[in-house]
Design a protein around this nucleic acid. Structure first.
Lengths: 338, 338
DNA sequence: CTGAAAGCGCTTACAG
DNA sequence: CTGAAAGCGCTTACAG
């Protein structure tokens, strides 16, 4: 049987309260007493029961991170940083997967109240804004990573619109005119705030350059993953001349796009430039290395954690939105038009 | 304030015990009573307090998954499947990261007792066998994914040695003779059971083909990631003639290797064939698509979960080892020597 | 089929 | 600086 505070107290000849004081270190304890208690703690190999502590304190020390798909490189990198940062601050992390499904996102929020967690960091993909606001009972402390309609929830995100505009400008500066995007928002297929903002940034840049938008170049995909992106681009190439450049709304899709281009015998960047978004770890190692929108995932994790801690502390605190800076990292996959 | 069973009982005009019976559905409850209770449950938006339940039952419904690095594609894919499968079976999953650090792996095992978890699935990288056995107090129910020295812990893994042998045979059949490996075991750098077994499989194939092993072709890396693999291969190419083929002990390293080869102007597979291990999602989309050892990550997740459930149920059950089948998937990155 | 009581292990006022 | 008591919310024998 595991030892309890009571066992430790008996062995050390003190009351449970004193043991608790030694463990939690809030109230000062006389050194001699402390030593006796610590010896007993060691001897009995005492490990606190966190269920009991959680029941008593109303806090479990566990937070949840809900992502659409842990197998996506971007999500995985974000999760890594988040878990690491959370551990450093003494939190344990429970992982939930929403499968890019709005209903499931809602369910996670309501389940968060059940599952021993003190708060929830949610990375939604769909336009879940209405859900996050919730008439689904009181929300647990929640922070959103990403851009959803502003509904009073704390948020952490990059400026997708500006970043997409800058990437499009980079491609324009290289002399590209017919620039396709993959991951466009399309009611019929997939709508997300992120997608709409990135597309808006793309349109901003085209408009500023006086280039008319060609709807055929806005390629929607059902899922932001390499396979669907490759398939969508291949289909596009079946029916249209190859574009000058392809700007993919994630690096994962860019890898799929590069595969589809290679499948048609098109050279990157000789025939078509390719750019991504997220600067995943693999971006620097694919051949050719991928130009991407880069930002510090650790910074996102830290900002989300800080926001969540604040929200857990004070549910009524004013809403905050943290914008994480980004840069355009140019690599071999984008080159001037000869 | 959240409603408790007591509030529900009062509203429904029954005792807390009856509410509990309705919720847990073990003891039959008269339909009329059941309905009244369910109405009260809904009206009060009752959500059980899992800390209390955990304290009472000695089970939390949470298990931990400990991985070296969540940002690695293989780990991320495994985690995705594991979390999904665990949720389907009613478990929540806590994620821990060991950072490929043996001490940290041990710490996780001992901390598992603290952290509200009923059991632990551990994917160790280093030769942690001695730690898993543990004179560190009683082990929590633990299952290991991967190959460690057999010490009485339940395990789930692929047959690394056979898979590596088969991949090496594939490369030999293509006419390659000077086959390098990346991820070799090297006392000075990095030792792991997985590494040793894959290297042993490679050696098995060479021996069967009557080819003498060249130690220079066994390239060790400090971390099984694209960057270190690319650097190690580049350094190798500085000092040696290019090998016929490179067999990387993970796909992540294979991507790094392909990058290094491209950096030297070497064509894959024209000049050098490249093979990996794990068949990560990106393997099919890199250019050229990567030949790899493939296995069902979902099957690993399910086997680990089943083993853990069994172990939680019966700590004294005999040890079991589940071997997950693999196949060699050949893609464009490996081709016959012309 | 249902009720009243006890207790899981912890910590927090309340006294000293 | 320390002790004795109470209670967090749940479920499980124990009675009826």
């Amino acid at each position: 049987m595991r030892a309890t505070v009571r066992d430790v107290a008996t062995l050390a000849g003190v009351s449970p309260k004193t043991v608790s004081n030694v463990i939690n270190g809030v109230v000062p304890v006389r050194p001699a007493t402390r030593e006796r208690v610590e010896a007993a703690l060691r001897e009995l190999d005492y490990v606190p029961n966190l269920s009991a502590r959680g029941l008593r304190n109303g806090r479990t020390g566990v937070i949840a991170l809900a992502l659409p798909d842990l197998a996506t490189a971007y999500s995985a990198e974000l999760a890594k940083e988040f878990v690491e940062a959370a551990h450093e601050r003494g939190w344990a992390v429970q992982i939930e997967q929403s499968g890019a499904n709005a209903e499931r996102e809602l369910e996670l929020i309501s389940r968060a109240r059940t599952h021993l967690v003190d708060g929830l960091v949610l990375n939604p993909t769909t336009l879940v804004g209405s859900g996050v606001e919730g008439d689904h009972g009181p929300l647990p402390p929640t922070v959103v990573i990403g851009e959803v309609e502003p509904r009073g929830v704390d948020q952490v995100h990059v400026d997708s619109r500006r970043a997409a505009r800058e990437m499009t400008e980079h491609l324009l500066e290289l002399g590209h005119r017919r620039i396709a995007i993959i991951g466009a928002s399309d009611d019929a297929v997939f709508r997300s705030a992120t997608s709409e903002l990135r597309q808006a940034g793309y349109e901003d840049a085209l408009a500023a350059a006086g280039i008319a938008e060609d709807p055929a170049l806005c390629i929607a995909v059902a899922e932001w993953a390499p396979g669907p992106a490759a398939a969508a681009l291949a289909e596009h190439l079946d029916r249209h001349e190859a574009p000058d450049a392809v700007f993919c709304f994630t690096d994962a899709m860019a890898i799929g796009a590069m595969s589809a281009l290679a499948g048609r015998g098109l050279d990157v960047p000789g025939d078509v430039s390719v750019a991504g978004f997220d600067d995943i770890q693999g971006a620097a190692f694919v051949v050719p290395a991928l130009t991407s929108v880069s930002f510090d995932k650790r910074a996102i994790a830290l900002a989300a954690l800080t926001a969540l801690e604040r929200r857990i502390e004070d549910g009524a605190a004013p809403r905050k939105v943290a914008i994480i800076p980004h840069t355009i990292v140019t690599r071999a996959s984008t080159a001037p038009r000869g």
